[in-house]
């Protein structure tokens, strides 16, 4: 294992985040605050509580997931797409660095940034609403697993994309709708039965539900199912990444 290389890529990516600190940290803090103002204050004043939890507190895990998914994907996809775009990827490809090491470096850094981001959002939320974490270990586990999984998906998108447009299109057309419809702002129990069934096809539901359970002990779906689904997504991402490197897809001509 070329640890030095993993660390070099990881540090390079973290340095990139430090240079764009505003974008990396300030913007999620602002958008989270806005969600609280709009959803927590405006709508929350009409919805008393969900499952015994105040609406403001109820949406916190969903908000964290919302940013976690979006940022993991955009960070990781940009991280690998940019060297492909500028051509500096030659250096990675000609170095004694294995695919696993490349992924560890890029996706690892993206996941780290997402976890830090999640922590920042939680801290911001704390200003607005009381937070209570019933299962802290599971909370961290869901946070890390989700960050890792979606950083891998981001990595895949960054390899698949052959233009900046494609880089944006998946987060915009797939991930954002799924997260908004994934029970971040409501419990799917609040939906009519048909829509509840449809919602269960949305992978994000399982992520949000499991994460929320780790806070308040309430869940839309059984937490075991949530965990299983999270693991499944991780496995899918790993299989695709493995295939990319085995075939050299979009990396080697």
């Amino acid at each position: 294992m070329n640890i030095e290389a993993v660390s070099a890529i990881y540090r390079f990516e973290m340095a990139r985040a430090r240079r764009t600190l505003m974008q990396s940290i300030v913007s999620p803090v602002i958008s989270t605050s806005l969600y609280f103002v709009v959803f927590g204050a405006a709508i929350g004043s009409r919805i008393q509580s969900v499952g015994g939890i105040s609406y403001g507190s109820f949406i916190v895990p969903g908000l964290v997931m919302l940013s976690l998914l979006g940022q993991s994907i955009s960070n990781a996809s940009f991280g690998i797409y940019f060297p492909r775009f500028t051509g500096t990827i030659y250096e990675i490809l000609s170095a004694p660095v294995s695919p696993v090491e490349i992924v560890l470096g890029y996706a690892g850094a993206a996941a780290t940034k997402s976890v830090i981001l999640g922590a920042i959002i939680l801290a911001t939320a704390w200003i607005f609403v009381p937070l209570h974490v019933e299962h802290p270990v599971w909370m961290v586990a869901f946070l890390v697993l989700t960050a890792a999984t979606f950083s891998l998906f981001g990595f895949i998108i960054g390899i698949w994309a052959d233009g900046f447009e494609k880089l944006q299109i998946v987060p915009l057309l797939i991930v954002t709708p799924l997260t908004f419809l994934g029970g971040s702002f409501y419990s799917i129990d609040m939906l009519p039965p048909t829509w509840r069934t449809v919602a269960l096809l949305n992978p994000v539901v399982y992520l949000v539900s499991g994460f929320r359970w780790s806070f308040y002990g309430i869940a839309d779906v059984n937490v075991g199912v949530s965990l299983g689904m999270t693991a499944l997504f991780l496995a899918i991402a790993l299989v695709i990444v493995g295939w990319i490197f085995r075939t050299g897809y979009r990396l080697k001509t």
Partner: peptide
């Protein structure tokens, strides 16, 4: 083909790192 925002020193150190040194 180079990066843009990194410093000369850090990009050269980066390469050394990639080669496991």
């Amino acid at each position: 083909t180079t990066d843009a925002f990194e410093s000369v020193w850090s990009t050269v150190s980066f390469t050394r790192g990639l080669f496991g040194l």
